[in-house]
Structure formats: C-alpha cells, structure tokens
Nucleic acid binder design. Structure first.
Length: 232
DNA sequence: AACTTATCCAACCGCCGCTAC
DNA sequence: AGTAGCGGCGGTTGGATAAGT
C-alpha cells in the first residue's frame, strides 16, 4: 500500500477509542487509542474503512451514473459527491473516478452524457464550477457579474461554494441569469411575485437590473448544485 | 512457469479554511 | 491583526494483485 498498512490490532484499538470517546478530537486519538499513527491517519482509517455502514464492492450502475453527473456539476469535490452516495467514501469515489471513469470516459463522452441529462436544460447551460481554490483572489470573485455572463446571458453560473456564505462578510449567493430565461423558464425557477421558490427551502429573488438572482437567506449552495440533478 | 505491464485502492502528503487565543 | 492548532480535503504514491506475453 501507499504507506504502512493498518493491522487488525490497530483497527481494533481505533474502533474502541472511537466507541469510547466518539468522533472528533483527532489530535488526541493516537494518544487515547495507544496508536503510533498520526491524527490524519487515524481519521482517514476511520472514515474510509472502519466507520459503520460503509458500502464495499463494485459501484452499481446508478451510482456510476450519479458520480458522472455530480462530477460534472461539482468537479473534483469528492467529499460532496460521496455525500450523495450512501455508504461510499470520498476516497472510494475518487479512486473509482481515477481508475475507471477518467480513463473510460473521454471528454466527448462526458459531454454527450451531460447533454443527455441536465446540463442543457431549457436553454440554460449549467457550467461546471471547476474554479481554482483561490478563486476569489485570482479573479476578484463574482461580486460583480462576470463578463462572460453578460456576453452570454443564457448561462447560469453557479459560483464556487467556498465563496458563498462562508463568513459574515461574504456576499449572498447569486446566480447570473438572463431575464428572458427567467421569465420564460419552467422549473427549476418556480416564480412567485418575482421570487423563485424551489423545492429546496430557498427563496431566491431576481434582480432584473443587475441580471442576477440572489438568495434572501443562508442556505447550502452545494445542495442547490447537487439538487439541480434531482430537478431532471 | 517466469516475467512484465496494467490496474486497483489504502495510505500519505501538503495545502486550505476555520477557530481560539 | 497575527498566529498556531485543528479538521478536512484533494492529489499523489506505492504495494498488492490481476492480466497479458
């Protein structure tokens, strides 16, 4: 393996420690469990192998399908993708992608898959948010509508979740969308007095002058991006 | 049977954001 | 405001095993 493999005894010690003290406080786990492992190794071993209800074995067809869709939406955000696959870990999903899908699916195949599903829905193109982690610093963020959105108003641009609602000073989440698209759209934009009421417990407001949508409350942007999948 | 190559996947590494001080 | 410590994440590594020659 890539590193020193865990022994049965080590697994036992770790499991007993978690049972006794619970998850979290990983910095204390090696000491509490009497393990000669770093906090990260303990956490990883627990999350990827020892945790209850972990599904092992090959991925079902539906799971693979979902991985492809979610990867299209979320990029390499394996923990988020894994969150939508009960019993699967981020490492599992990542490994599966790297071993199977990234090789078997060339870009054109992935594009075809997207076209058949949710990426071109009612003329609204959902772009993959595969932005760099230092997106805000490198591009100045999206506090102003990006030029591309103005030039291509039919696009909806999901911003990076990291840029949204992560601190009190963060601007509210926004979607840039053309007003005609908004006015003529079927779900996912359920309109009511200028507000957009999806089935996600969100209240989105369309600002026609700015050409953007904005939420009136804090909500999980990752869930929106993921749940767009469910609107199909 | 022996060797080489490809594949799989558990584990490690380095970085990031958050929080407490 | 600056910093250290922490949890968490994604990328990469490398050993085991399967498949091919």
């Amino acid at each position: 393996m890539g590193g020193v493999a865990w022994t049965e005894e080590e697994d036992h010690l770790l499991m007993r420690c978690i049972e006794q003290y619970g998850e979290g406080k990983w910095h204390r786990v090696p000491q509490l469990a009497g393990l000669n492992r770093c906090r990260k190794s303990c956490r990883l071993r627990w999350l990827n192998y020892l945790r209850p209800n972990i599904k092992r074995g090959s991925f079902a067809e539906e799971e693979v399908d979902l991985i492809i869709k979610l990867h299209n939406l979320l990029g390499n955000r394996w923990s988020l993708i894994a969150g939508r696959l009960p019993g699967r870990t981020a490492n599992d999903v990542k490994n599966y992608w790297n071993c199977h899908l990234s090789k078997k699916l060339d870009p054109q195949q992935i594009r075809n898959h997207e076209d058949n599903d949710l990426n071109t829905k009612d003329g609204i193109e959902i772009l993959s948010p595969s932005q760099p982690r230092d997106f805000a610093a490198s591009s100045g963020g999206w506090t102003q509508p990006p030029t591309a959105a103005l030039e291509a108003p039919s696009s909806v641009h999901p911003p990076m979740p990291e840029e949204i609602g992560t601190s009190p000073s963060s601007p509210p989440p926004m979607l840039y969308v053309d007003q005609d698209e908004f006015n003529n759209s079927n779900p996912p934009f359920f309109k009511e007095d200028g507000h957009v009421l999806g089935d996600l417990g969100m209240d989105l407001h369309f600002d026609g002058s700015a050409g953007l949508m904005q939420s009136s409350n804090q909500w999980d942007w990752d869930d929106l991006i993921s749940d767009m999948d469910l609107w199909g």
